[in-house]
Design a protein around this nucleic acid. Sequence first.
DNA 1: CGCGTAACGGTTGAA
DNA 2: CCTTCAACCGTTACG
Length: 342
Amino acid sequence: MEPAFGEVNQLGGVFVNGRPLPNAIRLRIVELAQLGIRPCDISRQLRVSHGCVSKILARYNETGSILPGAIGGSKPRVTTPTVVKHIRTYKQRDPGIFAWEIRDRLLADGVCDKFNLPSVSSISRILRNKIGNLAQQSQYESGKQAPHPPPQPSLPYNHLYSYPASKVPNPPGMPTLPGHMAMHRIWPSSHSVTDILGIRSITEQQNSFQSSKVAASQRAKLEEWSAINRSNFPPASSSLVNGVDKAHLEPHEAKFTQTPSGLPTANSYVTAPSIPPYHPPTQVSHYMGYSATTSAYVTGPTWQPASGSALSPHSCDLAGPLAFKNIAASRDAIHPVAASVL
DNA sequence: CGCGTAACGGTTGAA
DNA sequence: CCTTCAACCGTTACG
């Protein structure tokens, strides 16, 4: 469960079964692809299976994000206390109401929107399990609803944490969802549209180790791109970029990058000996709360100087940018470091 | 040979 | 706490 060292694939690359590739490598895959390198060559160069390269690129093309999907956990429940309460109310008012009618009403009354509307079967289950005895008890049940008013709005966080993963992309052709509504999954990840697009993370990283291989023009393009995108989105989302967005990235990266010493370079990274110990889930719950923990990362780590020194001037250390991203929350902190590296 | 993808064994985290 | 379960992971192998 705590693979200090990963396994080695057929190409000699290191991976940790069940865990996502480091973002640095993911990013590298996308970068190389953008430079016109063929997937098969990327695969060989980075020693990542072609299946994985294919998947990451496909996802990137589809969602614009290089980030892995949210692992573990459960989907946010659509049957929030509020919803249950309303269902109960409907049932009380009309004991003969059908589940599908309840569903329609939830939508009509604005209790739910089409993204968090429970399925008919969910409603049936609720009726059966939670309100089943309501029929008999409804009289007195009804009176005591007030005490526990779930302060929860019907859309608690959905609009904040969308999810860039493949299952529910918001493909260009799909007009229905604003990107940020694409998924109702708690993913401390992404989250701002720009982040969903993966733009920000890319540009940030580029800014960090751009000097290495990425052509200046490429960088410029990306920056411009991000600028465009940023400006195109509502302030609400962009404001999240610096908070939520990064917060989510950090934990992941922390695992990859907070390697105590000897940050592997891009070139050596994939070889077995230089595998960065996969940092075990730490005390910091990874997908932690967005706020507090972020600052923890910002302030705490001692790796910062190390990363700076370990960073080789060229040869694009993958670890470098990632390391920087750990403190991404404060770009102010980043840039000086990045600048010095550059 | 390159690429897309299903199967597989694995991890994760909310319920 | 512990267990369940459904999400995701990357590799492998096949077509």
